[in-house]
Amino acid sequence: MHTHDIVVYGATGFTGRLVCEYLVERSAELGGLRWAMAGRSIEKLENLRHEIGADGAALLVADTADPASIDAMAASARLVLTTVGPYQLYGSPVVAACAAAGTDYVDLCGEPHWMRAMIDEHSAAARQSGARILFSCGFDSIPSELGVWTVQRAAIERFGEPLPRVRGRLTTFVGGPGGGSMASGRATAEAAADDPAIAALLADPFALTPGFVGPPQPSGSEAGSEPDVGAVRPFFLAPTDVQNVHRSNLLLGHRYGADLVYDEMLVGESAFTPPPGAPLAPGEGPSTAAMNDGSFETVFIGSHPDGRELRAVVASSKDPGFLTTSRMVVETALGLLERQDVAPGVWTPGAALEGDLVNRLAERAFMTFAVLD
């Protein structure tokens, strides 16, 4: 018998706190949600519980340096939501414990080489135990997954078949990095520099589809111009998003076609520019005002060689990396707990929850999803 429905591991970090603040709101609405906050310091957890009014939340001391504490955390929960990154440094014991215990797992990972290692190492154990493991449940890469899902669903309804070419074009991207994201980026760059195999995997659009390789994909690494959108330039999160979209397609039985070609680019001046004094330390993030002023909009342009085309737009009116992301990961967790028909194994959030997640995010996460005529 699980003591908790959800345990938030890394609760006292910047994103972890946002997740917990939102869970206070959601648990009051849902009633009966048993959740806990976990981290290394009981004092910090007690302070956080008091500061955010999380009176109903239990507290757990857990630390990846103490494997028994991670195993106990996983065994106590129906689902573990972890914000503790870089995941390549701190995530492996949590995935292993959840896969062994039959506990669902969601995270905010954007580290594909680590995700591929976890797929290879724990898929069989998760299927056997009943665990559902979901990586990349935030801005990496839910908007991309659900944008392609939205445009291809419309194409199948309208044309009777998916569109073989989809372009994700970010027309708006206003947001700054957090210390955790920057630490993950540094760790990934160091790993790639030390290991040519990791560098090759990071550059492979099909790194997360073991056993399947589709057609050649655009590199997305060079600026250019497109007749229908104008100037485009590389987007630093695109490689991970592309890999997750192809994995989602694989998990959905290649519903978008085994010949799908997908890439992402920034449009015009929508280049990512860290604000002055951007936080560098893990556990730090932008101000509340900056997060409220953030936003993103991505147009997904699906096309066929015969000229047929459809467009969908996915957008958010808040900072994509924090306010929107914290709601994305919580709604993914809540949706997964409600969906016992999702089979055990390693999933993407879009493939696991599909339209249910679209509806949740449209209602709860400042997000809009629209097919354009």
Score class of each variant (00 low, 15 high):
Gly13Cys: 08
Leu18His: 08
His122Asn: 11
Leu59Trp: 00
Val313Glu: 08
Ser303Glu: 14
Tyr9Ala: 02
Ala290Phe: 15
Arg116Met: 06
Gly307Ala: 11
Ala191Ser: 13
Pro162Phe: 03
Ser287Phe: 11
Val242Met: 07
Arg165Gln: 10
Asp373Lys: 02
Gly110Ser: 10
Ser144His: 09
Asp263Glu: 15
Gly283Phe: 13
Ala191Asp: 06
Ala183Glu: 00
Ala223Glu: 07
Gly185Glu: 00
Val299Met: 11
Phe212Pro: 05
Thr64Cys: 11
Pro234Asp: 03
Pro239His: 03
Arg364Met: 08
Asn359Trp: 07
Thr3Cys: 05
Gly285Gln: 09
Gly168Glu: 03
Arg132Cys: 10
Ile301His: 04
Cys98Met: 12
Gly230Cys: 08
Glu46Gly: 12
Arg78Asp: 10
Gly147Ala: 07
Phe206Cys: 09
Leu30Gly: 08
Pro349Lys: 05
Val95Ser: 01
Ala207Ser: 10
Asn47Asp: 10
Ala351His: 06
Gly335Gln: 09
Pro320His: 15
Gly56Ser: 13
Ser219Asp: 14
Gly220Glu: 03
Phe14Asp: 01
Gly31Glu: 12
Val148Cys: 04
Trp35Pro: 00
Ala96Ser: 15
Ala124Tyr: 14
Glu21Leu: 08
Pro216Cys: 01
Glu21Ile: 07
Ala231Arg: 13
Met73Asp: 02
Ala312Arg: 03
Ser129Leu: 14
Pro143His: 01
Leu310Gly: 04
Val148Phe: 05
Met1Val: 05
Ile52Val: 06
Ile156Gln: 05
Arg40His: 07
Ile52Tyr: 02
Asn47Lys: 15
Pro274Trp: 08
Leu353Thr: 09
Asp263Trp: 14
Gln243Arg: 09
Gly224Pro: 12
Leu30Asn: 06
Leu170Trp: 06
Leu146Asn: 01
Phe173Ala: 04
Ala117Asn: 11
Pro276Glu: 08
Gly130Met: 02
Ala125Gly: 07
Gly110Tyr: 03
Asp66Thr: 13
Leu201Asn: 03
Ser129Asn: 12
Leu251Val: 11
Asp104Lys: 03
Arg132Gly: 06
Ala351Asn: 04
Ala199Phe: 11
Gly257Ala: 09
Leu361Lys: 04
Val313Ser: 06
Met118Val: 09
Ala75Gly: 13
Ala189Gln: 14
Leu60Thr: 03
Tyr105Leu: 07
Pro210Gly: 07
Glu145Lys: 05
Glu157Val: 01
Gly230Ser: 04
Thr172Ile: 13
Asp373Arg: 03
Ser270Asn: 15
Val245Leu: 05
Leu30Phe: 08
